[in-house]
C-alpha cells in the first residue's frame, strides 16, 4: 500500500501534540501495535520540538513541514524547518548533548529518535535549515534496508 500526506504548521509548541497525533492517525491503516504508535509519536514529538526550539529559536512564525509516506509496511517521516540549521550534526546527535540546558532540555531528542525508529538521517548546515528523515517498519521485525 502506498499513501502520502504533507502538512505545514507554525513553529508553536502547541502544535507538537497536533503533529504526533496526526502521524499516529495516518499510520493507523498499517495496523501498528500500541508500542509502535508510541514509538512513532515520541520520535515525531522530538523532531518537531527540535525544529521549534532550536531551528527557529522560539520565533513562532517559522513554518514546520511534516511529510509522511507509507510504502508497503514502512512509514517514512520527514520533519523540515528552514531555521538556523545545525553546525555540527554529529555532535548534536550525541546523547546528553544540548545547547539549551537552561530550558531543561535533556539532550535525548536524537537518541530517542534513533532508538524508536529503524532509520534516522539528519541533513543540516548553518543557515540551511534542518531535514530529519526517519523510517520505521510496521510489523514485528526491524526494518533492515532496501529490498527487504
Amino acid at each position: 500500500m502506498n499513501n502520502e500526506m504533507k502538512m505545514e504548521f507554525d513553529a508553536r509548541s502547541e502544535n507538537e501534540s497536533f503533529a504526533r497525533v496526526a502521524v499516529a492517525a495516518f499510520v493507523s491503516e498499517l495496523d501498528p501495535t500500541l508500542e509502535e504508535i508510541s514509538d512513532i509519536k515520541t520520535a515525531v514529538s522530538e523532531a518537531v520540538t527540535n525544529a521549534i526550539i532550536h531551528g527557529y529559536d522560539g520565533i513562532t512564525d517559522g513554518k514546520v513541514t511534516l511529510y509522511c509516506r507509507l510504502e508497503k509496511d514502512v512509514i517514512h517521516i520527514e520533519v523540515e524547518d528552514t531555521g538556523r540549521g545545525i553546525p555540527d550534526v554529529e555532535q548534536a546527535m550525541e546523547p546528553l548533548f544540548t545547547t539549551k540546558p537552561e530550558l531543561n532540555r535533556s539532550g535525548m531528542g536524537f537518541p530517542f529518535m534513533e532508538a524508536f525508529m529503524d532509520d534516522l538521517e539528519v541533513i543540516s548546515g548553518p543557515g540551511e535549515g534542518t531535514r530529519v528523515l526517519m523510517k520505521k517498519k510496521i510489523g514485528c521485525t526491524p526494518w533492515i534496508g532496501d529490498g527487504e
Binding site: 514529538s45 522530538e46 535525548m108
Partner: peptide, 13 residues
C-alpha cells in the same frame, strides 16, 4: 500516557 525527552529534562533539571 505520553512522554518525550522533555519529561527526562524535567527530572534531570
Amino acid at each position: 500516557r505520553f512522554m518525550d525527552s522533555s519529561g527526562i529534562g524535567i527530572l534531570m533539571g
